[in-house]
């Protein structure tokens, strides 16, 4: 075979810089999509809880779309499809400032919001109705009961699933490479193409992913244990 492993080319100089830039882009995608997704998920859960068939149906449709269509395709729909809706001037501007990342954030955030709202919903549903009754019997208002009794339990119950979604989101940022966002996977391939160091390039990037993933997995385990809800 005659292939000599040489990590030095990849671990320093411009290739390493590219990898670091990729990492930075990945983290930007990850964090912003996560925050936006979470906020939207809370909003969706509240909307769905209101007993109004049309809005409930809309939220359900939103969730089902994002659960049944591959994330990559969701990215395509936004990047290719939505751009057509915008006027040319806007598109030119967006392309100049590297708008792919914006589309990627939107797609990832919406996708995560769908999954997270389902997790919240099942967290809420698994709370026994007697809890609300007991909270009202004490004299709490409906909002007070939600704030002090129901929601504190709901988020604790939804926590393991939410943390699972966090890991999935982190790995999902790699799909942005499919629409040209220069995140970590994209840079891995670029560096490999340019430097011909296949194993080193992919090896380093894989190691970076694993490190961060393990960190997320560890944090998830610690948090789920700390906030585990045991019902009598």
């Amino acid at each position: 075979m005659g292939y000599q492993l040489d990590f030095s080319k990849v671990l320093q100089g411009e290739y390493f810089d590219l990898i670091l830039q990729g990492l930075q882009t990945t983290m930007v995608l990850f964090v912003i999509s996560w925050v936006l997704g979470l906020i939207l998920a809370i909003f969706l859960t509240v909307v769905r809880a209101i007993e109004f068939r049309p809005t409930q149906f809309l939220v359900a449709a939103f969730v089902e779309y994002h659960r049944n269509v591959p994330i990559l395709i969701q990215l395509f729909v936004w990047y290719f499809g939505f751009a057509v809706v915008l006027p040319d001037v806007v598109n030119d501007y967006l392309n100049d400032i590297g708008a792919e990342i914006g589309y990627a954030i939107v797609a990832l955030a919406l996708n995560k919001a769908a999954y997270m709202s389902e997790d919240f919903r099942s967290g809420l549903r698994s709370i026994h109705p007697a809890q609300m009754e007991a909270a009202r019997a004490i004299g709490l208002t409906y909002l007070g009961a939600m704030k002090w009794v129901i929601l504190p339990q709901a988020w604790r119950l939804a926590l393991p699933a939410l943390l699972g979604q966090t890991l999935i989101l982190f790995k999902g940022t790699s799909l942005a490479a499919g629409i040209g966002v220069a995140e970590l996977s994209y840079q891995a391939r670029y560096v490999e193409e340019q430097s011909f160091r296949i194993f080193e390039a992919y090896g380093v990037v894989t190691a970076i992913y694993m490190l961060i993933s393990f960190a997320i997995m560890w944090a998830s385990s610690v948090l789920s244990t700390r906030y585990r809800l045991r019902v009598k």
Binding site: K171, G172, S174, A188, T206, Y209, M210, S213, M217
Partner: peptide, 8 residues
């Protein structure tokens, strides 16, 4: 395996 994106 769970720590690596499928794309990688």
């Amino acid at each position: 395996v769970r720590a690596i994106p499928l794309l990688m």
